[in-house]
């Protein structure tokens, strides 16, 4: 085998998933619309008092991000499972976990990055101060890849099931709790004008941990789901 064949497979797979996403634009737009919509429902539900909104804003934005990610998760493997391409990945001569990273990266670029881009707008809508919005951006940048990585394990476990969606949320949401706590709290703390280095290092630690373990767990789960 030539030594560049794995990087080549990685980039081709990444390019493939991005091409497919561009040909189905709804996959990019739906979670994004959902994110904006859910966030803008809260002022209607709890009242538009600026102080209240500023207090709950970070939590709202992060919960909405969690749900938007959950909504898009099945896209990582579902269609590949249905048309049989997922089998071909398991039978490739490359480590499956590396292919998984390519797929998760593509998923993040398609669904996580747009959330990141639109989030300052939502921060402004909820009346967050400028410093807090910057921290919100940083937490989303570090945190949304964690959502995709952890979610991939859940999708891999449920991809063969007819009603995988309900179970998926039960499997994945509890695992999102630490991230939610650290990230929403970071934005809160920043809004109060306090330093958030500790929060950010904890979120980075979560990112490193999920980046190193989740691809292996996902690959193992895919083998099981397809057997």
């Amino acid at each position: 085998m030539t030594s560049d064949s794995l990087p080549r497979a990685f980039t081709l797979l990444l390019k493939r998933d991005l091409t497919l996403a561009v040909r189905h634009r709804a996959e990019i737009l739906n979670p994004l619309l959902f994110f904006v919509l859910v966030t803008s429902l809260f002022p209607l539900g709890i009242g538009a008092d600026p102080k209240l909104l500023q207090a709950v804003g970070p939590g709202i934005i992060w919960v909405a991000a969690l749900l938007a990610a959950l909504l898009s998760l099945e896209g990582i493997f579902r269609s590949d499972f249905e048309d049989g391409t997922l089998e071909q990945f398991l039978l490739s001569s490359h480590p499956v976990s590396v292919l998984v990273i390519a797929k998760v990266l593509a998923h993040w670029l398609i669904t996580g990055l747009p959330l990141l881009v639109i989030s300052p707008l939502l921060g402004v809508l909820l009346g967050l101060p400028g410093d807090a919005i910057i921290i919100l951006l940083i937490t989303l940048a570090l945190g949304t890849p964690v959502l995709s990585l952890i979610g991939a394990v859940g999708v891999a476990l449920t991809v063969g099931l007819r009603k995988g969606g309900m179970i998926l949320s039960l499997l994945v949401l509890p695992l999102y709790v630490p991230l939610l706590i650290f990230a929403a709290n970071a934005v809160d703390t920043a809004a109060a004008g306090l330093p958030v280095t500790a929060h950010l290092s904890l979120i980075s630690a979560l990112l490193v941990l999920s980046l190193s373990l989740s691809p292996l767990a996902t690959a193992a789960a895919l083998r099981i789901s397809l057997s």
Binding site: V153, L157, L171, L175, L213, A217, A220, A221, I224, S225
Partner: peptide
């Protein structure tokens, strides 16, 4: 599958 989930 459950074993993987329990490990995670």
């Amino acid at each position: 599958a459950v074993a993987i989930l329990a490990l995670v």
